[in-house]
């Protein structure tokens, strides 16, 4: 029971990081797609919240090393390179965004910060996806014969990068959906709506690419998927949400489209989780996969972690709600008047 509670909080942190932190990265990608006109809107939308949204990732890391230390250690060793690149991206994105906003003098250096912000908004989620893909793929070999086998092959492959691309697409899609409600300019709204729709279609095709590349890399992802009724259910839900999202976009239902889009992303995450469960890291043949159960810390540790998470949530969630109400609350009334 203890482990399940910890797994729940780990899952929750990943879901929140994707839904909020992910969308902050997506906003940067969106700026590349849409051009300079949206810079203000995007800066205004993510400015007050990105640091809070970022903390979910820190929570994921803490839960991993406290509750599943062998998983944290194995990832750190074999996925060192993509993790490091993701960290560089996290540093560059956060600092460039803040420096851009808080530079006392606005001149051409602002364009440099902006360029760094945009580029790092692409490759940070790309490597996040690569890491997730590598955990699933099963090419992590704890006793490698040489450097490439130990530290490159696990993540430098078609499947991991397909997952990376899929992650970037989903994050950008979420950002486009969220940003519709952040602007009152009709032109911008319809541009975001169009981008959201295109990205949703792109996600379907890149999703197919993920399965195809899995097959190519020797991972039977499709049959693993079809073996699980829950994964099928989630896939069905994600598909059914497609027309629902389109309908809500058509009618400018700001809140509804956000809920549908978030629902779709959560469905995809849950399907992935269920296919993997109880494994967290799949390893090469001959080595036992690292699961929630064979890597779990002793109960004494898990108990303390659960206390910290439960009490922490009771403090954090009301604070987060208040933050959102102060900065995003206006949109609820705004969307009503637009109907």
């Amino acid at each position: 029971m203890l482990i399940e509670i910890v797994i729940f909080f780990l899952g929750l942190s990943i879901v929140f990081y994707v839904l909020f932190g992910g969308a902050d990265f997506g906003a940067g990608v969106l700026e590349i797609l849409s051009g300079k006109g949206d810079r203000e809107t995007i800066a205004h939308a993510i400015g007050p919240v990105w640091e809070a949204n970022h903390v979910w990732l820190v929570l994921v890391v803490v839960i991993l090393f406290m509750a599943f230390p062998k998983v944290y250690a194995a990832m750190s060793v074999h996925l060192h390179i993509p993790l490091l690149l993701m960290l560089v991206g996290i540093v560059l994105r956060g600092t460039a965004f803040t420096y851009m906003h808080y530079d006392a003098i606005k001149d051409e250096t602002n364009d440099i910060y902006n360029a760094v912000f945009k580029i790092s908004s692409v490759f940070t989620p790309l490597f996040l996806g690569v890491i997730a893909g590598a955990a699933t793929l099963g090419k992590i070999n704890p006793e490698p014969e040489h450097f490439v086998e130990g530290f490159i092959t696990p993540w430098l492959n078609l499947f991991s990068f397909s997952v990376g691309l899929f992650t970037v697409t989903l994050f950008t899609f979420l950002a486009a959906i969220y940003l519709i409600g952040e602007t009152s300019q009709e032109k911008q709204r319809s541009a975001f709506t169009k981008t959201a729709r295109n990205l949703n279609i792109a996600a379907v095709f890149i999703g197919i690419l993920v399965f195809a590349s899995a097959h190519f890399e020797g991972l039977t992802l499709l049959s693993m998927f079809l073996d699980s009724w829950f994964a099928i259910l989630m896939a069905a839900l994600a598909t059914l949400l497609l027309p629902a999202i389109w309908w809500s976009l058509q009618h400018y239902k700001v809140i509804l489209s956000r809920i549908f889009a978030a629902g779709q992303v959560v469905a995809i995450l849950l399907a992935w989780f269920w296919v993997q469960y109880p494994s967290i890291i799949n390893r090469t043949d001959g080595f036992e996969d690292l699961t929630f159960y064979n890597t779990a810390a002793p109960d004494a540790t898990l108990t303390q972690l659960v206390w910290a998470l439960v009490i922490g949530s009771c403090i954090i969630l009301p604070c987060l709600f208040y933050l959102m109400r102060v900065f995003k609350g206006g949109q609820f009334t705004q969307s009503k008047t637009n109907q």
Partner: peptide
């Protein structure tokens, strides 16, 4: 060390969040 000294980090997570 993770399971032994992780506890303050789990509280630090909340503090950092706030």
């Amino acid at each position: 060390a993770g399971p032994i000294f992780g506890m303050p980090f789990s509280w630090e997570g909340t503090a950092f969040f706030v």
